[in-house]
Amino acid sequence: MALSSDSSTGRNSREKITIQNVSRSYESIRALADVSFSVSEGEFCCVVGPSGCGKTTLLRAIAGLDDPDGGSILVGGDPVTGPGLDRGMVFQEYALFPWRTVRGNIRFGLDRPACDCPDCEGRVRELIDLVGLDGFEDAYPKELSGGMKQRVGIARALAPDPEILLMDEPFGSVDARTRDRLHAELLDIWTQTGQTVVFVTHDIDEAVTLADRVVVMDADPGTVQSTFSIDLERPRERTSRDFVNHVARIRDALGSPIDASH
């Protein structure tokens, strides 16, 4: 573009992901009904909502894994037509390749012909270091705890250096203490890489801990109910007055306590 002269990686308000009037139905269920919002470049955006509000469907649509019935999704101004290495995805149940070691899983995206890295082994080592898995390079997923598996999932998604990181309740299956540590690590990684993150969760505390902005969705039909900016310094103290207020506002917006079982 002729107008834009800045190529810095700093946070700015350019739209990275634009979701316009997206709808998606499964038989009689309207998973998404006319959903619109956008995510700025470098922004950490959390999407919260009850089970069945279509937040996972929305994330999959951004990833190009699901085709909406109507509306459009633009990434960097181009419509999404399928999955791509510019969008990395982290799955709730890890989705690691069980027959590949930690190294092999992280390496997977680098070995695709679409990606050319001068030093793939070096890149893999760097990522293993980044997610703190030194010494587990040759372990198979079955030998890892849930938290370690998700570290591999994150490193694998980061390997092809995507501009966008899509995370689908990534810490839903790990215990509370591990989750806290993974939150801190994820924020570290995000600060280092400056990626745009869309993070789906049903946990309001988690959203307020991480996000620049929280998008609250309603279920049946899945719609955007409201959005909240979280302008607190990181790391955030969960017991602080401001934190508690943000959580309370979002909880009020949701109307009733979220069913945390899904």
Binding site: P83, L85, M89, L96, F97, F108, A159, P160
Partner: peptide, 22 residues
Amino acid sequence: DAASTLGVDRDLSMLKLVALPS
């Protein structure tokens, strides 16, 4: 799905890289 997001875009590659080992 994971393989798709990691750049596997042809049916034959998916068969070789995911279906066969799995």
